[in-house]
Amino acid sequence: MSEMQPEMEPVKHEWPLYEVFVRSKRGLNHVHVGSLHAADDEMAIRHARDLYTRRNEGVSIWVVKAADITASSPDEKDPFFAPSADKVYRHPTFYDIPDNVPHM
């Protein structure tokens, strides 16, 4: 797919793939909901509205070309996330506090 293609003009009428993120209401993060094809950013936003928010599912939409996203590789899953697994002292449950100490 797009990540593997060399840098070049897309085929004449090939619309690039966009990933769509929707904030469902104020106070919540944008969440990835899917993807779509559009000729440009503005069309991508319009298509995203029509496709992913037909029933008040969102108050804000982000679209980003799929080709512009960098993600961690699943192949290096374990070593990549290993540093977070061996630091138990980062979690509050690591510390023993007597039951009679309030609000902690």
């Binding site: 797919m1 990540e3 990933e19 799929a66 080709a67 512009d68 960098t70």
Partner: peptide, 8 residues
């Protein structure tokens, strides 16, 4: 881009 599967 990295969200899609590798072609091979």
């Amino acid at each position: 881009m990295t969200l899609r599967p590798p072609p091979t």
